[in-house]
């Protein structure tokens, strides 16, 4: 009798065995190797030439480099001046729209592996729901924090801001993607004003279609109730009953 038959149900490190109170040698060194790999992964840059199935516009935060990004989240939340100029030159949109922004965040592997396939699902679902994309393009911002969507929203004034961002890498999940939704993103909002769908990574986390399904539910409810954040609960499962 052992834990082996249970290991299929989770990536969690269960049934490791023990020697005294300690981990067996192989379990310890395996953990140590994966930590080393995760530390190395943080430093990997994002290739902005990446094709994601929709026209893109590259913008930049105030962050200087990766080290600056880690230590100065305030800079990662602010759009730099030349990027603001670019946004001011875009035509104003008065009708309902969803702004799509993507950033590597803390894991470039997340956007490299999942951004294109996830966006394909999301764009198709938005089209089905008759919800237009702001300026028919996605804005790519390397080294951004979630709050940067407010700076973009301040200028473009979308109904909903969607930030798709690489999450902090875990040992077993170096490439997990998250989506943050904000109703009418603008300066002065906080994380309590946003809804989050996290752990988007097929096989072990949410599939692209599950994540898109939840996102569409939240976008529709957010538009209907004119709110986002803690007062908007993810009740997408009710649609399945």
């Amino acid at each position: 009798m052992s834990f082996d038959k249970y290991k299929a149900y989770t990536q969690a490190r269960i049934g490791l065995g023990h020697s005294g109170a300690a981990l067996p040698t192989s379990a310890w060194l395996d953990f140590s190797y994966q930590h080393a790999a995760a530390v190395d992964a943080i430093k990997v840059p994002w290739d902005l030439e990446q094709k994601i199935g929709i026209p893109t516009q590259i913008l930049n935060s105030n962050v200087r480099d990766r080290e600056d990004y880690l230590l100065r989240p305030d800079k990662g939340r602010r759009l730099n001046d030349s990027s603001k100029q670019i946004l001011h030159s875009l035509p104003k949109i008065e009708t309902e729209s969803v702004l799509i922004v993507a950033s590597n965040g803390l894991s470039s592997f997340a956007v490299i592996n999942h951004l294109e396939p996830f966006l394909t699902e999301l764009l198709a679902d938005l089209k089905k729901a008759n919800i237009p994309i702001s300026h028919d393009q996605a804005f790519l911002v390397p080294n951004a924090r979630v709050g940067l969507i407010d700076d973009i929203g301040e200028i473009l004034r979308p109904t909903i801001g969607v930030m798709i961002i690489g999450e902090r890498p875990g040992l077993s999940s170096p490439d997990s993607l998250a989506v943050y939704l904000t109703y009418k993103p603008k300066k002065g909002l906080s994380d309590a004003d946003r809804n989050c769908i996290s752990n988007i990574r097929p096989l072990h986390g949410l599939s692209y279609s599950e994540a898109s399904f939840k996102a569409i539910f939240l976008i529709r409810e957010s538009i209907r109730r004119k709110i986002s954040g803690v007062n908007l609960k993810d009740e997408s499962h009710l649609l399945l009953e």
């Binding site: 989770t10 990536q11 969690a12 490190r13 269960i14 490791l16 023990h18 109170a21 300690a22 981990l23 379990a27 953990f31 994966q34 930590h35 999450e167 902090r168 890498p169 875990g170 040992l171 077993s172 999940s173 997990s176 752990n199 072990h204």
Partner: peptide
Amino acid sequence: PGADDIMLNYQSTSFHDAL
């Protein structure tokens, strides 16, 4: 389990650490 939280993506202490 194994100090590795696979949902929150951080390392904490394990059942073994408590032992």
